[in-house]
């Protein structure tokens, strides 16, 4: 337990370290040292604000998911651009209820963000028990198809990255 007490959030530390290097925009020894100090100190001091950190597994799957999402953002942006420039009366907007299988609150948040980031769909609301997302889509031909696409492309990998439901809210 001591490792967790003195170094509570390794992923947050890594993120802060990267942000600091980007902000300073050089790689001198002083920047690296200050970055390491901040990356160790900030999670330690703000420990109480992060009650139960998510523990990602399978970094390769996470990396593949990130690349897949970035690719989809570009591809679907072109599609939404075509929809916007086309005639507005041919659009088929819809509210779709999406059943969530994930149990980790962080993972549900990540899924909602991914849905909002990929063009054509926005997460409008989350049900209080976090089991259903209300999605607004710009142009839906078949609602079940949209749900299946989200499930296979984003939720399945997220389930692999955040497998256990150890986070009681």
């Amino acid at each position: 337990m001591t490792r967790r007490r003195f170094f509570p959030h390794p992923w947050l530390s890594l993120f802060l370290f990267g942000i600091w290097q980007l902000l300073m925009n050089d790689l001198s020894a002083a920047t690296l040292a200050a970055g390491a100090l901040l990356a160790w100190g900030i999670p330690l001091l703000t420990r109480r604000f992060w009650p139960d950190p998510p523990r990602p597994r399978k970094p390769l799957v996470a990396l593949r998911l990130t690349l897949c999402v970035l690719g989809d953002i570009v591809a679907a942006n072109l599609q939404v651009a075509r929809l916007i420039l086309g005639p507005a009366r041919k659009l088929r907007p819809a509210f779709v209820e999406y059943p969530v299988a994930l149990s980790d609150p962080f993972a549900v948040g990540a899924l909602a963000s991914i849905i909002s980031l990929t063009p054509g769909t926005v997460t409008a609301d989350v049900s209080p028990d976090r089991k259903t997302l209300l999605i607004h889509a710009l142009d839906v031909a078949n609602e079940q198809e949209l749900i299946d696409t989200i499930k296979n492309r984003y939720e399945k990998p997220l389930q692999e990255v955040f497998p256990c439901s150890q986070t009681p809210f």
């Binding site: 942006n77 939404v80 916007i84 054509g120």
Partner: peptide, 24 residues
């Protein structure tokens, strides 16, 4: 294109798609 979407789409929820996507 995002701003065109903001201008021409008919209701708020559809307008929401223009800026949050194309602008990003």
């Amino acid at each position: 294109i995002g701003s065109i979407g903001l201008w021409k789409l008919p209701d708020f929820f559809m307008r929401l798609h223009g800026p949050t996507k194309a602008t990003t």
